[in-house]
Computed example of a mutant assay.
Amino acid sequence: MEFMDAAEITDVSAIQRLGIEPNDVSKLVSQAFAEMTFKHGFVHCDPHAANMMVRPLPSSKWNCFGKRKPQLILLDHGLYKELDFETKTNYAALWKALIFADVNSIKENSVKLGAGEDLYALFAGVLTMRPWSRVIDPSVDHLVLEGNDGNRSELQGVLIISISS
C-alpha cells in the first residue's frame, strides 16, 4: 500500500489545476484499458471512478502551453480476469462490429462470448450503455456518450424485462 497524491478522475477542476488537460486524461484511460484488455489480456473487474486517479507524469515538464502529461493511477487490484487469445479476438471483433453497427457481426461475436442467441442485443446494450436502436444506428455518432433520459429508460426497461424472464 502506498499513498498517492493525485486528483480523483472525476474532479475536472483539480485535474486542470495540476496543468493536465481533461481530454488527455480521457484518452489515457481509453488507451490504458484497451492495452490492458486487447494487448495483455487482463480485465480490471472494478474500474469505477473511485478506483482511478490522475496526477502529472513524474517526468513530465510543463509545455509551452502550460500543460503536463497525465499519469493514470489504478487502485484496487484485487480482482482481474485473464482473457485467452480467442476471447480477446472475439471481444475485439465485437467492438469493431459495435462501432460499425454491423448487426450480424454483433450477434455472431456476442454468441461466441457466451451471450446466447437471444441475448446479444441486451449484451450490446449493456456494453455500450445504449438501447438497441442506437447500437445499430449507422450514423457516425451512434455511440457518442450523450445519452438522455429516454435512452436510459428504454435500456432500463429492456434490462428489467430480460432479468425477470
Rank of each mutant, 00 (worst) to 15 (best):
V126Q: 08
G114D: 09
H142F: 07
S133M: 06
L79T: 09
K69C: 02
A115P: 10
F85N: 07
C45M: 14
V12T: 15
N109Y: 15
S165G: 14
G66M: 01
T10H: 01
S162V: 03
D149A: 11
V144D: 13
F33G: 06
C64K: 08
N109S: 05
L155P: 04
C45G: 11
K69M: 02
R55V: 01
T128G: 06
A101Q: 11
K81E: 13
S30T: 11
A115S: 15
W62M: 10
I73H: 03
A101T: 09
S162Q: 04
Q31H: 14
S165L: 05
D102W: 06
K39D: 15
A32R: 03
F85H: 10
Q156I: 11
G41I: 01
Q31G: 05
K27A: 13
W95H: 14
W62G: 00
L98R: 05
A101H: 13
D137Y: 08
S59Q: 14
T10C: 05
A32L: 02
P131V: 05
N90R: 00
R130S: 11
R130P: 10
S165P: 04
L122E: 12
D24V: 05
N148S: 12
A49V: 12
W132R: 00
A92P: 00
A14D: 14
G150W: 02
F85K: 08
F123N: 02
G66E: 04
L122S: 07
H142S: 11
K39M: 09
M129H: 14
I73G: 08
E108R: 15
W132A: 00
N90I: 00
L119T: 07
V29M: 04
D24I: 07
S164T: 10
E2T: 11
H44E: 07
T128L: 02
M1E: 14
V144L: 13
A101I: 06
K69L: 10
C45K: 06
S60M: 09
F123I: 01
L155G: 05
E117N: 12
L79K: 09
H142C: 07
S139T: 14
Q71D: 09
T87Q: 08
M52L: 15
L155Y: 03
D149F: 00
A93P: 00
A115W: 02
D137A: 04
L155V: 05
S105M: 07
V126Y: 10
R152F: 10
R55S: 13
H77N: 15
R152C: 05
S30A: 15
I161D: 14
H142L: 03
F38Q: 07
V158K: 07
L57M: 13
I163C: 06
M4H: 13
E35G: 09
N104C: 02
L74I: 15
A121K: 08
Q16L: 03
V111H: 06
N104S: 11
